[in-house]
Computed example of a mutant assay.
Amino acid sequence: MNEPPEIPAWKEELDAIVGARAHGQLAAILPRLQQLDARHPNVAEIAYQLAWTCDVLGRDAEALPWYEKAVALGLPGNELAGALLGLGSTLRQLGQFERSASVLRSAQLQFPDNREFDAFLALTLHAAGQSGEALRVALDALCDTAEDPGIRAYQRAIRHAAAKL
């Protein structure tokens, strides 16, 4: 008979901390996450939650190494997508536009169905002064995802105009 997989020692504590964050206790949980990371320094999920918390608190420079660590250690698919989005967004906020675009383009290839990467790439391109390319990315995403009958009816014209940007 197969036994259920053993839950890692850190998982229950991380879940409790994330639950507290959901109740608006952002600043209070940061030290708890840091203490958990000190006890379990090579857990990608803990690093990701540290990054996310720093990010939400507006501490982009602090979030960056946590995102990098989480991605390097390896995360499950959905969390990896979130970490890459956070990493790309944080890099943009820190003015590292080329690196941000690289992370977001790589994420688009890894997660082609996650169209949020298009929006964040458009923001990065715009911030980098590449407004035409940013608008093209945004318009292509709009045409690919919109269910609006007007957008659908003019999709070909929109794509044609976007290609000329």
Rank of each mutant, 00 (worst) to 15 (best):
Q96H: 11
A107C: 05
G95A: 01
W66Q: 15
V56E: 15
L135E: 09
L87S: 06
Q35K: 14
L84R: 13
E13P: 07
W10N: 14
P149G: 08
G129Y: 10
E98A: 11
V71A: 08
P31Y: 07
L50G: 12
F120T: 06
D55P: 13
G95H: 01
N2Q: 12
V43I: 15
E98Q: 04
P5C: 13
K164D: 14
S100I: 00
G58R: 08
T53F: 07
G24S: 12
Q110F: 00
V137Y: 00
E45I: 01
P8E: 13
W66R: 15
D60S: 11
H40W: 15
A63P: 13
T145R: 08
R156S: 14
F117N: 08
V18N: 03
Q25D: 07
Y67R: 13
R115E: 07
E62P: 09
R115I: 03
V71Q: 11
R136N: 00
Y67A: 10
Q155I: 00
R159F: 06
S100W: 03
A128L: 04
F120H: 13
A161H: 03
Q25E: 15
L125H: 07
T124Y: 12
T124W: 09
A44C: 07
G19K: 09
I158V: 12
Y48D: 12
H40N: 14
A107I: 03
R156M: 07
L139F: 08
L104Y: 01
E68Q: 15
A134V: 01
F120N: 07
L36K: 14
F111I: 09
V18D: 06
E45M: 10
G150P: 02
Q96P: 04
A61M: 04
H23W: 04
L57D: 07
D113N: 14
L123T: 05
T53R: 06
Q49D: 15
A61Q: 03
S89I: 01
A138H: 02
R115K: 13
Y154P: 01
R115T: 10
H160E: 10
R156L: 11
R59G: 01
Q93A: 07
P41V: 09
L104I: 06
D148K: 00
L121I: 08
R105M: 06
R21W: 10
A163I: 02
E133C: 00
D55F: 13
H126I: 01
P149C: 11
I46H: 12
G86A: 09
N78C: 00
A107R: 04
R92E: 07
R159N: 02
H23Y: 03
E133K: 03
E116D: 14
A157K: 10
Q110N: 13
E12W: 05
L30F: 02
A47R: 07
L14V: 11
Y67K: 11
R136T: 03
W10T: 15
A47M: 00
P112N: 08
P41D: 14
G77N: 11
R21K: 15
R136M: 00
G150V: 09
I7V: 15
A146D: 10
G132P: 02
A127H: 06
L75P: 10
A157C: 02
R32S: 06
E147D: 12
V43Y: 05
L36I: 08
R105L: 05
A28Y: 00
N2G: 08
E45C: 06
A28F: 00
A63S: 11
L33V: 06
T90I: 03
L165C: 05
L87K: 03
Q35A: 14
A61D: 08
H160V: 04
A101N: 06
L80C: 12
